[in-house]
Computed example of a mutant assay.
Amino acid sequence: NILIKPHSLTQVRPQYANQRAKLAKWARFSNVYVANENDISLLPFIQNADILLSEASSTLFEFAAIDRPVIVCNFFKLKWTYRGIFKYRFEKRFGKDNVLYKEIGLHVDNYKSLIKAIPEQLANPQSYQANRQQYTHDHVGPTDGLASVRIVDYLEAFDKA
């Protein structure tokens, strides 16, 4: 089964009508669920997915925190206002953050490599596990379910100061 969670802007901006048409074609398959504009939270998708396929996205960190395989797709196409002579706009807005994702999981450069990588990563979820755990430690923090307790403790300590 395939779960597709497009960016919320894809759902609402007129310039993404072609992408919505492609998503509508995918949604016709019985084994595909394409999120709609009411599916705001990523959590149900993260909870139900065995593997994440994404480009440079903070979703990679969230998914890695549940210690499941991620594949970083390096073959996304930037919109024309970020390509060629306008590449400086992309770098100004997003910087060089893609290095953050360098070792979080397997990187693939094309669709053919992706199709081969998916079953390999599902069969070997332990590959990149140490990297996922390090990324979780560095970028997400504790995943023990006690975040609310820590927030309350912090607020109470701050209130006393």
Rank of each mutant, 00 (worst) to 15 (best):
A117F: 09
L53C: 05
K5D: 03
Q15V: 12
K102I: 02
L42W: 03
K25R: 15
A130P: 00
L146W: 12
A24H: 07
A17Y: 09
W26N: 09
L114T: 11
I66M: 12
S54M: 05
W26Y: 15
P119G: 05
K25L: 13
A56L: 02
L53E: 00
N18M: 10
G95K: 09
F63R: 03
F75T: 08
A130N: 10
Y88S: 06
R132W: 05
L23K: 07
D97R: 13
V108G: 02
Q15M: 11
G84I: 04
F61C: 03
Y101V: 02
Y88M: 07
Q133F: 01
A35V: 04
I4Q: 11
Y33A: 04
L43Y: 10
K22G: 12
P125Y: 01
V149H: 14
A56R: 03
I71K: 00
R93S: 14
Q129R: 15
L9C: 06
Q11R: 10
K160P: 02
Y154P: 01
T136D: 07
Q121Y: 00
H139C: 06
F61N: 05
D97T: 15
D109L: 04
P142C: 08
A49L: 05
R93N: 14
K25T: 12
F76W: 08
K79T: 08
R20N: 01
Y101Q: 01
N124M: 05
K22T: 14
F63C: 04
D109C: 05
L122A: 06
R20P: 00
Y88L: 08
F76H: 10
F45P: 00
A123Q: 14
R150F: 10
L106Q: 10
K160T: 13
Q133N: 05
Y33N: 04
H107R: 11
R150L: 09
L3M: 13
K77M: 11
N38E: 14
A161P: 01
E103F: 10
H107M: 06
W26R: 09
N36G: 13
F75Y: 15
G95T: 09
Y82G: 04
K5M: 08
A130Q: 13
S8P: 05
G141M: 07
K22H: 14
A64D: 01
T10E: 06
H107A: 06
Y128A: 00
V72A: 03
Y111L: 14
P6K: 06
V12E: 08
A24D: 12
I71H: 00
A157C: 07
V152F: 12
A17Q: 15
E62K: 06
R28Q: 15
P14M: 02
D39M: 11
Y128R: 02
Q133H: 09
E120M: 08
L122C: 07
G95E: 11
P119V: 09
L52E: 04
D144R: 07
A27T: 11
K92Q: 10
N31W: 13
E120R: 05
V70F: 01
A64R: 00
Q129F: 09
N36V: 06
K92C: 03
E156K: 14
L100K: 09
C73Y: 02
F75S: 08
E103I: 07
K5G: 02
N36H: 13
E37D: 10
K112T: 14
